[in-house]
Amino acid sequence: MLKISGLVKRYGEKCAVDRLDLHIKAGEIYAFIGHNGAGKTTTIKACMGILSFDEGEILIDGLSIKKSPLECKRKMAYIPDNPDLYDFLTGISYLNFIADVYGVSADERNKRISELSEKLGLKSNLANKISSYSHGMKQKLAVIAAWLHDPKLIIMDEPFVGLDPKASHVLKEMMREHCDKGGSIFFSTHVLDVAEKICDSVAIIKDGRLVTSGKMEEVRGDSSLESVFLELEDNNDE
């Protein structure tokens, strides 16, 4: 579903992502972990076509994000680390706008918005302006918007930040359901417990370079993901 090959992104002299290779298959929840400034957000933005890259290739369901950005974006959805949404719209207007852009039929959008907003506990607030929303409410709205057109691939940058425990639980369920239906999820997180519990695969990145990747059980082995992560970080420091 998402294939990253030899990705290189430089900011001047600094190489933010260095020859990164990842392969996220259909039906897979894939965690992307690393320290702050490791290159996670840069990689995610490159996958979304928001950020250009210097070398390599990113394929979304077989299509190149460089050559066919719009076709790729139709298959994807994105939740950024800080959901700066259109503050001047109400929650419902924003969702309607997103549904229009993705061409979701009227019947389908009405059904989905009702279900998803109910699930995440945002329904009663949909008539209010986004400017009045808390960070968590904006995050919930971004989640609903991402699920609205039933994308094949959902890319999320720190999706659990700001969510209340119930919404976090619901999001994890939604992620699992989405992948059980054949979709894929690629997300960055610092919450290693969550990654360990819900992810099928994991990649660890350090200073722009892939340290390890693979099935969760293989990477983790007999210890916890946290131990593996800290060990790899320390080894690389040495």
């Binding site: 959008r109 009702s114 008539a127």
Partner: peptide
Amino acid sequence: RGERKVEYKEKYMSSRSV
């Protein structure tokens, strides 16, 4: 900021072009 909270009442939303 003077924004009044309103309870959302579900209504049918039609679609538009992009």
